[in-house]
Amino acid sequence: MKFAVAVFPGSNCDIDAYRAMGAVLGQKVEYVWHRATDLSGFDGVILPGGFSYGDYLRPGAIAHFSPLMTSVVRFARGGGIVIGVCNGFQLLTEAGLLPGALLRNRGLTFICDTVHVRVENAGTPFTSRCAAGQVLRLPIAHGDGNYSVDATTLAAMEQKNQVLLRYCSAEGTADDAHNPNGSCANIAGVVNEQGNVAGMMPHPERAAESLLGGTDGLFILGSVVDVLTRRDHESCAC
């Protein structure tokens, strides 16, 4: 099993994702340059946080046209696991792999903080280690995390269980008071209809070691490892 961490010009959480998957979770992981097009041999792709192409135009708008993204779209359409964190989430919405868009935070300032999020759907490859309703404590750091989606799409997403994470209190109450950026329906992360592509504003890779203040991120990254490990075994058994 091997993970790809995409590197666009301006990515800066690539090293954090690499470290969390490699040094912390003990998985094989490689950086993949934005001009690369070959994702064969990879089982999961991480689109990391940062400011790809300087967030010119709007976050993710230019990275969407990079050669690598064409391959990522193909990889995702083929059922490959793709997780986008922060700028990676913005990129997935720009690429049309996830519904909605990420607007400026409602306070118009960048926010770096630690927040609580509630796991809304524990039946995805990204939350298999979690219980439904479980509260995770995760870092956020973004200027454009205000998730927005039209009412019809939102209703469909809710119906199909596509809301993955919601901002909430430490006790699990999702409300406006605990929503840092004004996102629609307090959404912090979503998953596509097929369940193999997820995007989230919180940074699970930054919450992977107790020395740095918490390990709740491993509930998410570890879930992906579990699911792919199972998939590996199953394919061997065949």
């Binding site: 800066n12 959480c13 090293i15 954090d16 470290r19 969390a20 946080g49 300032t109 960048f110 926010i111 770096c112 903080d113 870092p139 750091a141 890779e205 930054r206 992977a208 070691e209 020395l211 740095l212």
Partner: peptide, 14 residues
């Protein structure tokens, strides 16, 4: 002030 600065990127901030 410091909420506007990313203080934990590079996952080294103890």
């Amino acid at each position: 002030v410091y909420r506007q600065y990313d203080s934990v990127v590079r996952t080294s901030t103890v």
